[in-house]
Computed example of a mutant assay.
Amino acid sequence: MRTDGLFISFEGIDGSGKSTQARLLAEHLRAQGRDVVLTREPGGSPGAEEIRALVLQGDPDRWSARTEILLFTAARRDHLERTIQPALDAGKVVICDRFADSTRMYQGLSRGNLRGLVDELHRLMIGIEPDMTILIDMDPAKGLSRALSRQGVEERFEDFGEELQQAMRDGFLALAGEFPERFVTIDGGRPIEDVAEDVQRTVAKRLNA
């Protein structure tokens, strides 16, 4: 696959502020005259949004971990075909709120040792990684409190509790160590404006490299 554009993903535990930072980065780059596609996972295309409703709503034990992996991979494939790859081929900046690293964590590690299955399906069906992954790091208790305060309908993973949040934070930090060439870790426990400035500086270095 050609990737003439730049593919940036945001990762972090629930309530870390990554969605806000993804939006602020998109607004910042657009103000500079760049062509930006802001998208999310699961979702980002009509078919993937339908799958999003299946996996983010309902009881915590609604799906097995293996079923979730298949659902997320199907959603990601549709998202890739219909949104991400066409934008990259057109030379655009794609900013995605979550990508495969979230599946590596939430389904690959937290609900059984299934990381190998996640990576194999990713290799077979997706075959692309972000050029840059920005990890917004956050204290698990604070992140969970933020996430639950939203009182939305997509709370299935928040309902697993703080233990999952801690495991996910540890896992994301481990991923950042595993893929240092594309991960940048930013402290999300500060004012939104300070975090945004760090994100913008980090991306500017990549764009100007």
Results as ranks from 00 to 15, higher is better:
R77I: 13
R76I: 14
L80K: 14
L6R: 04
Q151K: 10
R77A: 15
G127F: 12
G112V: 03
G108L: 07
T73G: 10
I51M: 08
D131I: 04
R82C: 12
F172S: 09
L117E: 14
P130M: 10
F160H: 14
D131V: 04
L173P: 08
M1K: 07
Q151V: 09
G143S: 07
E81D: 15
L207F: 04
R52S: 00
N208W: 09
E81C: 14
L164N: 12
S102H: 08
K18H: 04
F7D: 00
G127D: 09
R146S: 00
L135P: 03
P180R: 10
D59V: 00
S9F: 03
I51F: 02
V184E: 01
K92C: 12
D89E: 14
E49F: 13
T67K: 07
V203T: 04
L173A: 12
T73D: 12
V36M: 07
R34Y: 13
A87Q: 09
F7A: 02
H28G: 02
L88K: 11
G15C: 12
I95Q: 05
A147M: 03
L164G: 11
R182Y: 05
L88N: 10
R169P: 11
A22F: 03
F183V: 05
Q200V: 06
D78K: 08
R30F: 06
L114M: 10
E193K: 06
T67R: 01
I69A: 09
N208T: 07
E50Y: 08
E120W: 13
L6F: 14
D35A: 14
Q166D: 15
I95F: 05
L54I: 13
L173R: 15
L121F: 14
G58F: 02
A22Q: 02
M132P: 00
P60A: 05
A26P: 07
T73S: 15
S64A: 01
G12K: 01
E162K: 12
G108Q: 05
T73P: 12
S145W: 10
L144S: 03
T67A: 10
E50V: 12
D78S: 15
G43N: 08
E181N: 08
P42H: 11
T73H: 11
